[in-house]
Each structure stands twice: as structure tokens, then as C-alpha cells.
């Protein structure tokens, strides 16, 4: 039992550190579009770590099933919300700060 406790603590601590890293990320990155990626960390791996750690704490029960349900729901809804936000910003005319050196690099590389 102690083994499972320690593993779940490791998961929760990792989730907490990832959350703070994402929080620092939205202050480090220069423009809106790159901040989306920092929020992506907290939406994906941080939430996953927390919920898996909590699942280990509750054991096999209705509570852990509900935690899995939150996990599944977040993995459907958070990319949708992020995409809708990026789409609204792009259609709203917000220009991203692109890297000058490589700009346009990828347009003509597709093996279409």
C-alpha cells in the first residue's frame, strides 16, 4: 500500500510542478499564440498527472470512475476551447509574432 501511496504522491507533485511551469510560461512567452502552448501544458499533462494521482488515492470506487470521467471530458473539451480561441483570434485579425528567419519555410515543403 505504501508503494502505491508514494507513486501517487510522485504523480501529484509532478502535476503541481507542471502547473507552475505553465503559469510561468504564460508570462515568459511574448505573444498570444505562443502563450497558447504554455496553457497547453497545464491542460494536458498537468491535469493528467493530478487526476491519475488522485485516482490512485481513492482506489477502485465510484470516485475514481468519476475522476476518469473528468479526465476524459477535459481531453475532449480543452483542445476544442483552445482551437476555438485560436480560431477567433486568427479571424479577428490578431497577427502572430513569427520568426523572421524561418518565416514561410514550411509552405513549399509538402509532398502533396
Amino acid at each position: 500500500m505504501l508503494f502505491i501511496e508514494i507513486i501517487s504522491w510522485l504523480f501529484i507533485v509532478a502535476g503541481a510542478l507542471l502547473g507552475i511551469a505553465g503559469g510561468i510560461g504564460i508570462h515568459r512567452f511574448p505573444d498570444f499564440y505562443s502563450r497558447l502552448h504554455a496553457v497547453g501544458i497545464t491542460d494536458t499533462l498537468c491535469a493528467a498527472m493530478f487526476l491519475v494521482g488522485l485516482c490512485m488515492q481513492t482506489g477502485v470506487s465510484i470516485a475514481s470512475l468519476k475522476l476518469m470521467l473528468i479526465f476524459i471530458f477535459l481531453f475532449f473539451s480543452s483542445p476544442t476551447a483552445t482551437h476555438a480561441l485560436a480560431n477567433a483570434a486568427l479571424l479577428g485579425g490578431l497577427k502572430p509574432e513569427l520568426d523572421e528567419e524561418y518565416h514561410g519555410h514550411c509552405f513549399d515543403r509538402h509532398p502533396d
Binding site: 502547473g19 498570444f32 497558447l36 487526476l51 465510484i62 477535459l74
Partner: peptide, 30 residues
């Protein structure tokens, strides 16, 4: 920009979900 604010509020919401879940397991009231 406005979109930065919406992004931050969305992040606050996701974190609040995790906070409630942690608090539920912490206090044993699942």
C-alpha cells in the same frame, strides 16, 4: 489583448476543476 484575458480565464477554470478534485479527495468527501 482580449484573447489573452479569455485564455487566462480558461486556465483559471481548468485549475479550479483540479483544485475542487484535490480538495474532495483531501477532505474525504468524494
Amino acid at each position: 489583448t482580449l484573447y489573452d484575458r479569455i485564455l487566462a480565464v480558461n486556465m483559471v477554470g481548468t485549475k479550479t476543476v483540479l483544485l475542487i478534485a484535490v480538495f474532495a479527495v483531501l477532505s474525504g468527501r468524494t
